[in-house]
């Protein structure tokens, strides 16, 4: 792997982080109102609390942000805070910092997303590869593909709502909300807690997987069809290779590479969809937390959360970019 390739990808990662932080800094300042007074006033109006100490709080926050200083100084201070992952306190849950809230929520989202995305990717890619293979059983194309394609056109959370109503509310096979049963103290040492968590994660994961499989299957199928027209496939057949070798080592191996690039490009999209799935299932990840923060007008939480998620997606894309040349050595030789 060449160094300039890694450096270039790392540069893109840094640009994403910088852009997310800058967006967070400038967007609220574009509106002419005093952001802090406005947010606190909204807070007071909605919740009926914070009334008495509001003026003091505005002053304290203004000094903290240095809103009286010139814009470029504020910008530098803000960037310094972001570099330390300091996103201030949550307004709604005051003594807690935004970072600690995110720290609670992020593992849930990561667990759910990594598991369901990988499963959807592998099942979908496998199905797509088989569908394009001329000797594959026909029932896959006629009976399995159409419903999966239908699901793929529908947003994740719509499927989630339907599954939740049928399997959790009507049939009562699965718990209806949350990440683990109420009253249970989270203890990752116990096997029963793992089982409880798995039961809660099942329906959200299935709604993401079902909705995503069709996309991967379609992509893989198209790639396999192009690959099968290549000269090396003809050569493989002329050499008298086994069908299985041709299928796995020649066709799938080559068609897999663009799928991985596509995975890197889709991460953001998948996450946008998963946010709402979490809200539907009240899953204790970042989606639900974001929803609660929006309801409570908890501005610092929204900002910090969005920044952290964009940062994590940037990091994941960077890691995938590093894996990609291992799968396909040609990529680093190309001047892209």
């Amino acid at each position: 792997m060449r160094l300039d390739y890694i450096l270039k990808r790392f540069g893109i990662f840094l640009i994403i982080i910088w852009a997310a932080a800058t967006l967070n800094f400038f967007l609220p300042r574009l509106s002419t109102q005093n952001p802090i007074r406005q947010k606190l006033a909204e807070q007071a109006r909605l919740g009926g609390y914070l009334q008495s100490g509001m003026e003091e709080m505005v002053k304290v926050y203004e000094a903290k942000f240095g809103l009286d200083k010139p814009l470029w100084q504020q910008y530098i201070t803000y960037m310094g805070d972001v570099a330390h992952l300091d996103f201030n306190y949550s307004i709604a849950n005051y003594p807690r910092t935004v970072v600690s809230l995110i720290g609670d929520a992020l593992p849930w989202t990561l667990g759910l997303l990594v598991m369901s995305t990988l499963l959807a990717f592998f099942i979908g890619t496998f199905l797509g590869a088989i569908m394009a293979w001329p000797r594959a059983p026909k029932f896959i194309v006629t009976y399995i593909l159409p419903p999966l394609l239908t699901f793929s056109a529908v947003p994740y959370y719509v499927l989630g709502l339907v599954l939740l109503y049928i399997f959790a509310f009507q049939l009562k096979w699965f718990p209806i909300f949350g990440g683990y049963s109420g009253g249970v103290i989270p203890d990752w040492g116990k096997l029963s807690f793992w089982w409880d968590v798995a039961q809660h994660a099942f329906l959200p994961a299935v709604s993401i997987i079902l909705a995503a499989i069709g996309f991967w299957a379609m992509g893989m199928r198209a790639l396999m069809i192009t690959t099968q027209g290549e000269d090396f496939m003809l050569l493989a057949e002329a050499k008298g290779l086994k069908q299985r070798t041709m299928f796995l080592r020649y066709a799938v191996r080559n068609a897999l590479l663009p799928q991985v690039t596509s995975l890197a490009l889709q991460l953001g999209h998948i996450l946008s969809g998963a946010v709402l799935v979490e809200v539907v299932f009240s899953y204790p990840g970042i989606g639900t937390m974001l929803y609660q923060a929006i309801r409570a007008n908890d501005y610092f939480v929204i900002q910090g959360m969005v920044f952290c998620v964009i940062g994590s997606i940037g990091l994941a894309t960077f890691v995938l970019d590093l894996i990609y040349p291992v799968l396909d050595p040609r990529i680093t030789y190309r001047r892209a």
Binding site: A20, L265, V275, I294, Y299, V306, I310
Partner: peptide, 23 residues
């Protein structure tokens, strides 16, 4: 191309949330 490439990898909904909250 740089703006588009970076903009497409970022989760769009979250950027829109920030914009919608700001306005």
């Amino acid at each position: 191309r740089g703006i588009v490439d970076i903009g497409l990898t970022v989760p769009g909904l979250l950027v829109l949330i920030i914009i919608a909250v700001a306005v």
